[in-house]
Amino acid sequence: MITTIPQNSAFKWSYRLYVALFFFYLALPLATVCVFAFNDSVFPSLPWEGFTWAWFFGDQAPYIGVFHERPILRSVVTSGVVAFWVAALSVFVGTCNAFLFVRHDFRGKGFLYILMLLPLIIPGIILGISILVFTSNVANTLEDATGLWFDGLRPGIILVILGQFSFITTFATLVISARLQKFDPGLEEAALNLGATPWGAIRQITLPFLFPAMAAAAVVAVLMSFENFNTTLMLVGSDAPLTITMFDRLKLGSTPVLNAVSLLLIVGSAILGLASLLLQKK
């Protein structure tokens, strides 16, 4: 079953047919979502009523397009803010972790490394509830003790950021560590010999070398943050990110506006995904 071994053609063609069917199955739901974003009907279903841009640019009810739909636009902004902070925090902590695990040897390193990987095997919904329980207890204790309000520790945008950061950091650490391991420490020593300070050598030699990995980690973080649902669901307050807003809409009944948003999301995430691959290849 490899290219150099001849196979009977019936087998070969049925294998190819299977692969083709598989890719059809992969593409089917996404293609359907995209096609119905252009259907001139208030339900995303057949029959096909003609082509329209109304679900993107329309401003007359019931044809309110994405770009005139305030709640959706607002949740996109919320998602953007969350994604920015998650990316910034997780790349920062991820870079520190990479230096720690690649450059330093210390007691308990193996144990800490396993702990660092744990967020990968904790289901997202449990990460969400555990953080919810913990921050509420802390907030209650603090409020009882001081008599002040601690709204930041109640469900809302700050908890959403912390919840997503708690597992995305692991991915950032893995991506950045992989690049730092390939770095030749000789380059840094050369800089030190030429009179650079230790911090200067890291800033001018090591960090530029790491930059593609840090950028890739940031892109991955933005992607994961935008599409995260489980953890966010448990921590969300009144200002919901995009996935939560879409979920609430979907439960009420869908209109092609959701298809239009989905189409934009598909295009956006494909571009970001390709960007992260290109950055990691560098």
């Binding site: 890719f23 992969l26 593409a27 089917l28 739901p29 996404l30 359907t32 979502v33 119905f36 995303p44 279903s45 992607l223 935008f226 599409e227 649902f229 996935t243 879409m246 979920f247 979907l250 869908s254 959701l258 298809n259 989905s262 999301l265 598909i266 995430s269 494909a270 970001l272 995904g273 691959l277």
Partner: peptide, 19 residues
């Protein structure tokens, strides 16, 4: 082609199956 659906939000994929 295998990777692209994974980058898209799970919500969008599920929505596709609902339609």
């Amino acid at each position: 082609m295998c990777l692209i659906p994974f980058w898209v939000s799970e919500l969008v994929r599920t929505f596709g199956w609902m339609i």
